[in-house]
Design a protein around this nucleic acid. Sequence first.
DNA 1: CGCCTATAAAATGTATACATTTTTCAAAAG
DNA 2: CTTTTGAAAAATGTATACATTTTATAGGCG
Lengths: 208, 208
Amino acid sequence: MSVYQRIKHDLQQGRFAPGSTLKQTELAELYSVSRIPVRDALQRLKSEGWLIPHGKRGVAVPQFDAREVEDLYLMRMRLEPLLLKFAAERLNGEILGRARDILDRMEQTPGLSAAEIGALNREFHACLYHAAERPTLFAAVEQLHEQCERYIGYQSRSLDYQHTSQREHYAILEALQQGDVEGASRVLEQHISAAGRALVDYLNGRPE
Amino acid sequence: MSVYQRIKHDLQQGRFAPGSTLKQTELAELYSVSRIPVRDALQRLKSEGWLIPHGKRGVAVPQFDAREVEDLYLMRMRLEPLLLKFAAERLNGEILGRARDILDRMEQTPGLSAAEIGALNREFHACLYHAAERPTLFAAVEQLHEQCERYIGYQSRSLDYQHTSQREHYAILEALQQGDVEGASRVLEQHISAAGRALVDYLNGRPE
DNA sequence: CGCCTATAAAATGTATACATTTTTCAAAAG
DNA sequence: CTTTTGAAAAATGTATACATTTTATAGGCG
């Protein structure tokens, strides 16, 4: 496991206090490596939004910011339906079947951890979006998901919301199977909107 | 001037052949530094789209890809009007005045280089968008502009297009001044669409 | 003659050592 | 008592040296 992955993992676990600054030396000792791979990892994490620049030097762990979540989900609302429309032109039974398999797995496997649910969630969307064959747009959406992950790991989702989310996923698939691209896009937009609201409410309900 | 800036500058100037791979050792010698700052620069440039991963190791200079441009401008079409709407709620005479100053400078200064025009162009948009006070959305849009820059530097814009673009800029300002946010958004979307088409046509007209 | 393998060369990843910059803390001046 | 200033400490930036991995090449085998 690379230093990058380990630091990211520890950030997801909330091991580093938001607002605190990370020191290369400390991290190097913590992971028993030199500062060079730590520097590489920090820079990459910074470019991905897991860390933010701190003053003229160094990086800091970002605070949880409901306004950032709002923007991330607004952007997803604007971009993902677009991507889905491109994908719809190339979707076939095989791809739709794989997508459904992922949903079924999510439904039927009891006791999944938040991380596992998130992974399947992403796999589902990626499966559909990949079919669009739009590498640039796809990468941008992936990056947004990546940035959302920081908050999703923090939130312990209610079972209630989980259920609603799952229903929406199936609704998207149904619409796609019937060739109703517009309908699928609308559900998707709603889906993202609801997820964003849930996160924002959660953050506002538990201010730090 | 940092190594990062120098490499980026040379990429803009087309000094490195698209498709070729960049070697840390060569760059280190070229700029008379060690490989460490070169590594930092390469990683950052990779995260910004100026370079792409190459196999398991190393980075390559990306080819010019009309499909990438399409996606970049599609995303801008979806995100920038959104940002403009947020900005509109907070715009005042002072900000609009500054924006107009930038346009006037562009108009009245003869013989501006492509780079200078691009800088003013970006300054104009940033001036408006900054007022939105939406750091996350703003940063995402800035990143898209950054990625577009790679192509814009490559394209020598026709005077004709330059004139049209400038008219659209003024049209956006006019609409904002009259409180017609919807109108301004529409013009902006058209503006981006036209710019994207011009670039794509240019790239298709001169295949590599 | 083509293909596979092994060895050498080259490129990247990492550690250690040094240089430079920033921050901190304490002492002295106002 | 507050503010300023300067030196020490700490953190980051950079260079050199070494380790590991990848790639290229030459030689042998089918």
